[in-house]
Each structure stands twice: as C-alpha cells, then as structure tokens.
C-alpha cells in the first residue's frame, strides 16, 4: 500500500529510562490516507532498518482497537485527534498532506518510558492485583440466571468493563491521575452482586495502590472521559468516591 501523502513526524526518541530523550524529525513520503497510524510507523521503521538505524519502539498488539496496547500521544492528545478510537484505529486520512505530527509516549511518573514511545504500564496491573477481581471457590458453574441482575446495573457494569487499560486517561489528565481507570475497575464489580462481598476492601485497596504508584489526584477536568477510546464515563469516578467515602465511614474494622 502506498499513496501520495507526505508527512513530517516529530518523534520522541529515548534509549531507555535513564536517557533524557529528545524529539527527532523524520519525513515520511508516499503515505496512503487509508493506512493506519501504526502502519505509517511500520513504513518509517522499515526505512530506518534499511538505513541501518534504530527503529522507533512502540507498543501494539491486536491492531483492532481492543487490546489497549497502542499508546501514542499524537499532536497533544492520547490516541490522536479522533474520539473513541485507539491509535491503531486512527487512519492517515485524519491528517492533511504535509502535516507535521508530534508523537510522544504517555508521560507519567507511574508509567516510566521503556524505550521511545513504549512505556511500562505495570502500575495498572498492580492496581488490579490489589483488588480488581472477585474471589471464587471453584466448583460447578451455577446456572446463569440464578443471580438476577437489573438491566440498568448490568448495562452500567458492562460499560465500565469495556475499559481496555490503555492508560489514555492518565496520559490525557493534566495531573496524570488514574482515577478513570481505577474507578471503571471498581465500578464493574460494585454494580454486580458478585462484587459485593469484597466491595469495601476492594475500593480501599485499589485506591491505596493507585496512590502508592504515584499517580496524581483527580481535579475533575473530564479530559479522561473525552479521550477514553471506550467512552468510560466519569460517573464511575463519582461512584468510586462514593464507595471510598462510604466505606471509610462504615467499615467494621476500626
């Protein structure tokens, strides 16, 4: 696939976490408007490899918009100019010929840069393992309809569970806060009967881990919600705040 678009990329290059990092400029010629943003990077990388240079490291996996691996901060916005898409689902037709495009990694203390545009998002995994689960004693699966769930709650739980953990919320937030991610994970269980037994301990543990990871605090700018590729609502943040405050005031353990 080739086309007649030319773009200039200003890409963040950083050898490793100890390197200071800097922008480097790469002109990319013959780009098709139907290419995805990542395919355009593939072209650049092939050329860099042919020239004997180090290719640009970036995260990607499914390239279908559901895995949450791609993580580019494009022209000042996570996942680029479109709403409701990940970088892999962003196509070059969203840019104009001869555009200069600035590409950076997610920037947060809790997301250290591994190399170039790839960051370490293990902080999210540690938040999840602190409480983002339900404990089940194994046995036969019970009948699917034996636990009735209201339609509204089921819908809200599903909407929260669509979070793919890409970290765009942290990247978009001026405080590098992870509140949208953590609140989506808290909410998907808080809304369902299966999440109730561990509900109080879960919100305390996950918020404590979130704070320990060095994420900022939420100032309700709403940038996370606007940039989330899955459209997770900040009403989840309010639910987590409610759960957190309510739990603090009602825990049996003093």
């Amino acid at each position: 696939m080739s086309g007649d678009m030319n773009v200039t990329l200003k890409v963040w290059r950083q050898k490793n976490n100890n390197d200071r990092g800097r922008f480097e400029t790469y002109p990319v010629q013959g780009v098709s408007p139907d290419m995805s943003f990542l395919e355009m990077f593939d072209i650049l990388n092939e050329r860099l490899i042919t020239e004997g240079k180090e290719p640009v490291a970036f995260d990607h996996d499914c390239r279908e918009g559901i895995c949450g691996m791609c993580s580019m901060f494009i022209n000042g916005r996570p996942h680029g100019p479109l709403q409701g898409v990940t970088t892999c689902q962003l196509h070059m037709r969203s840019f104009k010929n001869n555009d200069t495009i600035v590409v950076e990694p997610w920037r947060a203390k809790a997301f250290p840069v591994v190399k170039d545009l790839a960051v370490n998002r293990s902080a999210f995994d540690r938040v999840m393992s602190s409480g983002g689960f339900i404990s089940i004693n194994t046995g036969n699966a019970q009948d699917a309809n034996s636990t009735p769930i209201g339609k509204d709650d089921a819908d809200m739980a599903f909407a929260a569970a669509t979070c793919i953990g890409c970290g765009a919320c942290v990247a978009a937030c001026k405080n590098a806060s992870a509140m949208l991610f953590v609140s989506a994970k808290v909410s998907q269980f808080a809304l369902l009967p299966q999440g109730q037994p561990e509900r109080k301990q879960r919100v305390l543990n996950m918020v404590a881990q979130m704070d320990a990871e060095g994420f900022g605090s939420c100032t309700n700018t709403g940038a996370c919600e606007a940039e989330c590729p899955k459209g997770i609502s900040i009403s989840n943040i309010a639910r987590m705040n409610r759960d957190f405050i309510g739990t603090q005031l009602s825990m049996q353990k003093v």
Binding site: G21, F73, N75, G76, E104, K174, N175, A176, S177, G216
Partner: peptide
C-alpha cells in the same frame, strides 16, 4: 500533581 508528571509533554 505536578510531581506525577516529571517530564512534560512537548505538545
């Protein structure tokens, strides 16, 4: 919150 993003974005 500033400390939560030690390296600022270029854009």
């Amino acid at each position: 919150n500033r400390q939560a993003r030690p390296v600022q974005y270029g854009m």
